[in-house]
Design a protein around this nucleic acid. Sequence first.
DNA 1: ACCATCGGTGATAATAATGAACCAACAGGA
DNA 2: TCCTGTTGGTTCATTATTATCACCGATGGT
Lengths: 263, 263
Amino acid sequence: MSSTVAKALSLLDYFSEAEPEIGLSELARRSGVDKATVHRMLVVMCNYGLLEKRGDARLYRLGAGVLRLARVRETAFPVTSVFQQVLEVLSAELGETAHASLVSGRALATIGVSESNRGSRVSLMAGEILPMHSTASGLVVMAFSNGELVDRVLSEPLAAKTSRTITDTSILRARLQEVALTGYAESDQTNEDDVYGIAMPVFDSDGTTTGAIAVATPAHRMTNDLRQQVIAALFREAEKLNYSLGGRPPAAFRTAASRYRPD
Amino acid sequence: MSSTVAKALSLLDYFSEAEPEIGLSELARRSGVDKATVHRMLVVMCNYGLLEKRGDARLYRLGAGVLRLARVRETAFPVTSVFQQVLEVLSAELGETAHASLVSGRALATIGVSESNRGSRVSLMAGEILPMHSTASGLVVMAFSNGELVDRVLSEPLAAKTSRTITDTSILRARLQEVALTGYAESDQTNEDDVYGIAMPVFDSDGTTTGAIAVATPAHRMTNDLRQQVIAALFREAEKLNYSLGGRPPAAFRTAASRYRPD
DNA sequence: ACCATCGGTGATAATAATGAACCAACAGGA
DNA sequence: TCCTGTTGGTTCATTATTATCACCGATGGT
């Protein structure tokens, strides 16, 4: 945790769509690391293209290296385009915002968003980091992961993102049991006020949970009819995703899916 | 150079389209770093999502974090899609492979490729790292950069990629002078045998050189007619790129361009 | 002119990285 | 079966790297 590379890499997470350029002092203040230390790390990361400083201003931003790395990964294991298609189908059919995230360390990395075209809709930023414990996607990913990931997540204090966030580990473990039985997870304003999310897991070829697709609606709009509609659509699209990505859902999920919609 | 974060980040560059998954020992062998050290760094980078190990095998690969970071950068500063359009215009018009690279540390990161549809063509891998001293793109980027970048590149020994690669720093500095006058750079098999490249710089809003677009042909096919055709197309597309990306070419490049095609 | 803050630097004290040896597991071959 | 050479991963004493504080010049607002 206190390794230097960890500190250096954690700096990357402060760059977001909302704040794509940050200065040295600001970065030092947020990370709680000394200015001189941050500076040394920034220089190194600039040398490797992960960051770059705009010649003009003295601000740092994500560099061309991340574009290159993403391209390498995407050409070797193409996923984002496949996810994006599914998301657009979901948002078009349901009229609500759909998004996809992949397991990235001990959190989720949002790699795709398709917003609904309604005036009132859930809007989330591309590239956002989602916590595991307070989102439907996180719950469903943990529920179908080996205990190792769950332990890692629960070993740290769970931030109360809203007044409804589950911060008690034993209660959360019970929730995970339920989720594992149903095959999907729901989040009623546990990550953000007025946002209701429903998520379904996506798997790798060896049964590992790689991420999740989810539909998010304004909380007041989530009726039971819409719930059923969303869940059915998610089951259908998750199966398509697993098929086209070569994912093999584990037995636990298959039985949950068959329980929901018996053939 | 011997900082730990530098060593950790350098591990990322061993992952390529051709070899997207690498094991611990292999990575240690190539980087020349001790196995234990590499392992610690890999674990940290997995925790931050830059890497991930496939649950099945015990191989490491680029993680979902790089997809997220690329998305953050791309939504804040969209460039790849703009470049890609230009590349497709170039390859369609000229019938040869076009590619774009951005300055990434002390090298170039290829962020876009559009191959020609001819049977014989130059084929390069997306996400490839191009050296500064042996490619046309590198030459033109250095020629229009402040001396700082050039010094950094020339401070290290210049690898002889082919028998024609310029490895002498003073000769190369002279070449940069020439390139700065013409506004474009040519590379006759200095990076790869049988590949002839012509490159043109792309600039930032403050006149900094951000990267280059280039056309690569089999060396034997490069006639003087084709040369002129390529250069004219590159001048035109580079101007379009600078316009749509808000780039402001420095005076040196503007005079070079006007010298080539006086109004 | 002033004060605050910016990005950046350097020397010393303290921490974290290093690397050889070691382990268990697996694969292939004799 | 036994041997051998891999693999991924771990341990721990030594040591070299890193963090820290104070400082600097520049910038910008009052």
